[in-house]
Design a protein around this nucleic acid. Structure first.
Lengths: 403, 403
DNA sequence: CTGAAAGCGCTAACAG
DNA sequence: CTGTTAGCGCTTTCAG
């Protein structure tokens, strides 16, 4: 029953109800009107199935009620966890969510930040792979509020909010847990060393090793990509290297003490900490395919606590770096920037020459850090108990939080 | 260096370049102008860092260059696969992607369809859980093109394009593969029976069983939710039931032939086909925890061929129902509707009384069905070979396509 | 309380 | 080739 030729507009309703378009607008936005007017407008609107044109509304109001979330690849479970939270909060606040995969192309990330100027979105949550000087500049001049999930160089004082994980502490949690459950030769399968997570997790691993009085053996560390396949081959490489008695790969290192743990002729390591769950899953598979038992022979710990931990066998102990929580916090911070208390009145800003700048910066940028949490499951149970942990009864893997 | 107080507009540039706003618009849209004019406008635009206001543009043009994708829960890998494709195509065509999780609330799905009337998006790709009469009505009167991923009741002649998977054939592929590799007692762990996938996969299972000359034993079928945990407990239930010698659950059924395959006292089944990968992973875990070997004692086959198949151990044989391809096709169909050949001029439409309808329906609705593909991995290798398939060398799970 | 009218920023007729 | 002008649909002064 829609008026032929185009969707109904305020004018359609005004004519039908015999009032002005201004009254229609007022009634529809609950700005008060005579009961009789309200009745007639509402009736007319219902009859024609009127739906306000959101675009026109945005043009007038300057807000689109859209948020953008940009990350490398939605295929990564960590981002999926974030999207879920962000979408849920956005929805609850009446915002739509625009998704943007950058495929890890820095140029694309920049484009997303710059495109905020096109007024399509009221704010952006960005997960950058690497922060370049161009990023800093783009963030500085962003046309809309931005929240970065990741680490921003502190000395740059980039004026955007951010939420970060504590990879260093997280890696420490994993290593300490392994050491406390009796593991002595803890290997480390890391992601690319030139990424922030890669660097931090490596640092955390080393620090915790030292804190636990364990020797850091370079033979036990291997670096690769953040994928299941890479994890598997990295683990194979590690095992080859260790059982070969320090033959090829390591140049000047002393012979590998391949027989230290458990039975002689063992794998030369009794635990492996992996920089994310994909790597841990790959490592598990490599161990399985060589007939090594988890956690009997080798304990495995992953990181990020994604949905994947319950997919592997045995269920994977993992360090939850708070993906979901970071997503939630980022969304909250962003919404606060968008509609929260305008202008930081509590401070006499240094008011340099460029006072009338592009956008009211509001309160100073905040950085929040999410505390990691170790979730213990079967893959890191102490080696002692039952002869075949593979036959452990189900229900054994209920996650348990630790400091 | 932006003009203080608001972003630059065509007017800002017009003044700066000493031309009219019309010329600015023309130059910016490549509609030809005197070289001198072009130069001046471009220079002015660059100087002020002009970015066109997409909202204003949309209001004028009636298109937003935004697409919406709505599904139950982005946590499901099947949807992740679709999103990736859709996002990638959308991006290539200059469209943004709006994501919408309905949390399986039918009311929410309807709201998404109806909200197309607010002009926020140029088209919608919808993955409905169930099609109600309200859905039909909403789709019929949708204000923008919609493509449904899933099955639409044919007799209703809903005027929207759709892409569907062939679950029936897919289930058949799985069962036939198991039968051909020597399995005789093929169990089936299904999802909810009141869903389209649940019904179809069940149908496919039965048909294939019959085609292979295997007896359909109700004791071998169990129904539950589509999750890993549910898969594990369903598998446990199945094993309890079968090894208990047909004690409680089944009322009038004859005793279970629990000793048919392999060694006496075996599990009473030698294969299990699961209606999706999550269920298959759960089933694998249950089997492991009971000391049963995969595929030595029991072969496992999943469905959807999600990223999860490589997470489990051994890698899971799975039926690829073409999630990614369905996403791709849906996106292509939608874009074709949006900007493709307008109006179906090749046909003298029956032109009933309601000729001047809401929206030009364009060419008649099309339905495309994606052909399933079996991807064989280690979890369904024949039982004969090596005594311990767990120790199979890596690299054994390269996916292989079959009819 | 209500109507007339002015724009939000842009594009596209329509004259010159 | 260029400038003037009329809207896209809505919200919001400003009078009445």
């Amino acid at each position: 029953m829609v008026t032929a030729g185009g969707a109904p507009t305020v004018e359609t309703i005004a004519e039908r109800a015999g009032v002005s378009i201004a009254s229609v607008s007022r009634v529809l936005n609950g700005h008060g009107a005579r009961p009789e007017t309200v009745r007639r407008v509402e009736r007319a609107a219902a009859e024609v199935g009127y739906v306000p044109n959101a675009v026109a509304r945005s043009l007038k109001g300057g807000r689109t009620r859209q948020l953008t979330f940009a990350m490398q690849d939605i295929g990564n479970p960590v981002y999926v966890a974030m999207v879920r939270q962000i979408q849920s909060i956005a929805k609850a606040e009446g915002y739509r969510l625009l998704l943007h995969s950058t495929d890890a192309v820095a140029e694309d990330e920049l484009a997303v930040v710059r495109s905020l100027a096109d007024r399509t979105s009221d704010g952006l949550i960005l997960c950058p792979i690497r922060i370049t000087p161009e990023h800093i500049e783009a963030l500085r001049t962003a046309a809309r509020p931005v929240v970065v999930i990741g680490s921003l160089p502190e000395e740059e004082r980039v004026p955007v909010d951010s939420v970060r994980a504590d990879s260093v502490a997280g890696a420490g949690l994993a290593v300490r847990h392994l050491a406390e459950t009796g593991r002595r030769r803890i290997a480390f399968v890391n992601g690319p060393a030139d990424t922030v997570p890669g660097r931090n997790r490596h640092l955390g691993y080393h620090r915790a090793l030292a804190a636990c009085g364990l020797r850091a053996d370079p033979e036990l560390v291997v670096t690769t990509e953040f994928t299941i396949e890479a994890g598997a081959s990295a683990m194979h490489r590690l095992l080859d290297r260790l059982t070969a008695g320090g033959a090829g790969t390591s140049a000047g290192g002393p012979g590998v003490s391949a027989h230290e743990p458990g039975d002689p002729g063992g794998p030369g390591l009794d635990a492996v900490f992996c920089a994310n769950d994909q790597l841990a899953l790959g490592a598990s598979q490599a161990l399985h395919s060589r007939g090594l038992r988890i956690p009997g022979d080798v304990a495995v710990v992953g990181m990020d606590d994604t949905v994947l931990v319950r997919a592997g066998w045995p269920p994977l102990t993992s360090v939850d770096l708070g993906s979901a929580e970071r997503g939630r916090i980022a969304a909250e911070m962003l919404l606060e920037r968008i509609s929260g208390p305008r202008a930081g009145s509590g401070q006499k800003a240094g008011s340099g020459p460029g006072s009338g700048s592009v956008r009211d910066p509001g309160p100073p940028a905040r950085t929040r850090t999410v505390t990691p949490r170790l979730v213990v499951r079967a893959s890191s149970a102490p080696a002692r108990p039952g002869p075949d942990p593979h036959a452990a009864p189900a229900g054994h893997d209920r996650g348990e939080a630790a400091s």
